[in-house]
Design a protein around this nucleic acid. Sequence first.
RNA 1: GGCUCGUUGGUCAAGCGGUUAAGACACCGGCCUCUCACGCCGGUAACACCAGUUCGAUUCUGGUACGAGUCACCA
Length: 485
Amino acid sequence: MSNKVTTRFAPSPTGFMHIGNLRTALYSYLLAKSQGGNFILRIEDTDQERLVEGAVDVILDTLKATGISYDEGPLVGGEHGPYIQSERLPIYREYAEKLIDGGHAYYCFCSKERLDSLKDENGIGGYDGHCREMNYTSEDAARHKAEGGHVVIRQKMPEEGKTSYVDMVYGEVEIDHSELRDQVLIKDDGYPTYNFCHIIDDYLMGVTHVVRGNEYLTSTPKYCLLYDAFNWERPTYVHLPLLMGKDEEGKVSKLSKRHGAVSFQDLVNDGFLPEAIVNYIALLGWCPKDTNQEFFTMDELKENFSIDGLSKSPAVFDYEKLKWFNSEYIKKLPDDIYEAKALPILDEICEAHINTKKLAALLHTRISYFNEIREMSAFVTSRLPMSLELYTNKKNKTNPENCKEVLEDCLPLLEAVDEWDNDTLFAVLKDYAASKEKKAGAVMWAVRIAVGRQSVTPGGATELMEVFGKNESIERIKLAIQELS
RNA sequence: GGCUCGUUGGUCAAGCGGUUAAGACACCGGCCUCUCACGCCGGUAACACCAGUUCGAUUCUGGUACGAGUCACCA
């Protein structure tokens, strides 16, 4: 086994990629790649009750979209395969038996019902060591099983003393053995628990640095004990601060579905760019050294990543800042790529006479995610109900009365326009304003409100008219005059 | 409840014994402008608390408070 830094990402195929998991994958990947190391993808599908069809593809697709490539794993293979835990069952069984032989584990026959009865009203508590000294043999276990009984293998925790380890982020963590329960290693259905198989796999796959969420901080001593029982060298632990979400009341807790769109797919479906998502989450819990840079490509992240930039305290996922990052990425998109994403949405919601290309251009600097185009284009797809109040603007000294005048004056001028484009329209209205000794703004305001029918529009009066085309623009102005009468 | 970890503006965060305590998002103001946005300029706003160590603590130690995580035949 080489000394190369080796990390892994070991998700459960749950059917969606939680943004917190994605961040763990990112950091794990970056830790390896920042040191020229190896990155492994392993699928942890030992919970048969939670299997979801197509879930592995979701993981694979997400990693591909974000540019997190793995050196070993499903599809690409590698020297430590298989990389799907359900295909490694005999391995776990073998090692569990070694532990039993060594006196570090034992068969337990306690039924689920018995275990449940041991819990307190809060659901806390559990196994009481009932089968600890029974020394059931594998024959006993087989017989009990055949008779319809429950059989699991449990780890035998030391009764006294404590175990400690040094985490790269949190420093020394020490847990008293009295806190440790005899955890299940192999379940009744024959599958291993996470607590057991991840250790076997990490060891066998040569993982040097275990990067995972901080929810494992206090259970890690149990894993250390397992390494010790096998006489294996413990890996280096890098626990990550949790990603939190904030609810309406302002309470923070582990980021979850109740906090809104928290899966990578949700975000992408809403029109967030994978690069923007990666950039944002990279900075949630990590900060580069000696620089204030905030825009990072994946290559730049690899160059700059280091463990000592990791934070200890939990970070609240801020949707607003993600939106800002995304809008910056959208603005940087070349026009053709931007249009390829924006136009289909506009074409879907707009009638044929709308100049969607022009509208898309107006929207380019205004949206923070592509689906925002839908709400921002509502005024285009239908003639919004409006209040005449909108015609009143202090700065331009406009009000419903003088706006009506302006519109009546401009209507014939506009009807006479053949070249229906922004520059021509602008010139026409500007000339009109000059001839009447009005402020250009006053004229533009009247027309913009009449055409846009809302206070804030993506673009000025003449830009909107270009988007609407001559017919619709004239119709809207006529409607406005009617409403003002 | 036990145990573990954490605590710099509303949010992300720099800081690693002596600083006017960075920067970003959000927010507010100004400029630009046919509105909004973009862009540019500026502003409001923070070291949880109490002891101790020290000439000096945001930085080190202890305690308190608050927050979070964990205590599964889930990972």
